[in-house]
Design a protein around this nucleic acid. Sequence first.
DNA 1: CACCAAAACTAACAACCGTTAGTCTTCTTT
DNA 2: AAAGAAGACTAACGGTTGTTAGTTTTGGTG
Lengths: 196, 196
Amino acid sequence: MAKIISAKPASRKAVILEKATVLFRQKGYNATSMRHLAEAVGVEAASLYNHIDSKAELLKAICFTMAAAYIEQLEAAEKSDASQAHKVEQIVRFHIRMMLERFEEVYVSNRDWKHLQEPFLAQFLQQRRSYEKRFADIVAVGIDQNEFRKLHPHVAVLTMLSAVRGIEFWQKNKRSISAAEMENDLVQILINGLVA
Amino acid sequence: MAKIISAKPASRKAVILEKATVLFRQKGYNATSMRHLAEAVGVEAASLYNHIDSKAELLKAICFTMAAAYIEQLEAAEKSDASQAHKVEQIVRFHIRMMLERFEEVYVSNRDWKHLQEPFLAQFLQQRRSYEKRFADIVAVGIDQNEFRKLHPHVAVLTMLSAVRGIEFWQKNKRSISAAEMENDLVQILINGLVA
DNA sequence: CACCAAAACTAACAACCGTTAGTCTTCTTT
DNA sequence: AAAGAAGACTAACGGTTGTTAGTTTTGGTG
């Protein structure tokens, strides 16, 4: 009976999540109604509930999928035996790529995580604090080894993470500057601002 | 009859705008209801309309007050005869101070301007694009004069503007790092990342 | 003290929210 | 072709939204 469990079954749900991500990004989580979402999917609002449990579930899926991706990559950087500067660059470049390739999801996660409901809000915040702490530890080691300037690691981390978010405003200028150029400029500013 | 037009009259409206700013920051514009706001002011929801015309008016006031403040300061920097690097530093420091001293307003403006209704949304966006352009022009001159590295001015501007937004996450760490330390670290990263 | 405007109140409106119940249709599988 | 599940539909629920109308209370001025 459990032969092809998730061949098509996942597909419809995946479409809903996909459309929801776009709408959340455009209008924000609270301003997106289930009836708008249903229209985008091409179905009546009530029909959505044959595939999902709640609107909140959609936001939760987006935010935690993103969090998991970032954490996974951070662990790879931690295990690397490159210089601290190289580790930081690796992380920053990953953030840039995520912003470029998975823009909608990243944007919604960055902007609407506040609307997660407990206990997921607390869980999400804890994951992010942990992420920032581990990232800051890498920077701290770099400072100790005189690879970086003497500054507060946490400030450096927040600066880098926020700077990358600027890409969301660049999105419309794709034609005048290529993604590769943008990535290199951004990395140059941040890494040169950091290294001694 | 028009003797003391706006002595106390402004006061009640000012309180409403103040409380609204805090609530918008905490919950977001859409998630803040007029009844929540009324409770914060200590009044029934309908009574608010003796002082304001609409909820949208409150958001509009916040966003355009902030925009005006930034534009005014940019003009001061443009007129200055300092080096381009100094102009940029001056602008960045202003952004940091605004983030520290007028956090609630800046935060709401940064986050909820999307919920402005036309034609104000278009007007706001135009002002911001103009601001970015003029800021980028300062950077471009700095590059021409070999003050800055060779990179795309617009990318540099977006990076700086976004980096400053990182302060919103630092707000809770006030105790471990002072505002002055934070400002200096942030300026150091950005300016050193920029200068040749 | 009487008056008048400012500003509070109650009540209600139409619209929309996320979600559920129950029914009908569609498609797959035997 | 029959059966059964998957998924669409309509209708409706209780609640909340921003806002208006109409009335009463408040507070300063003649």
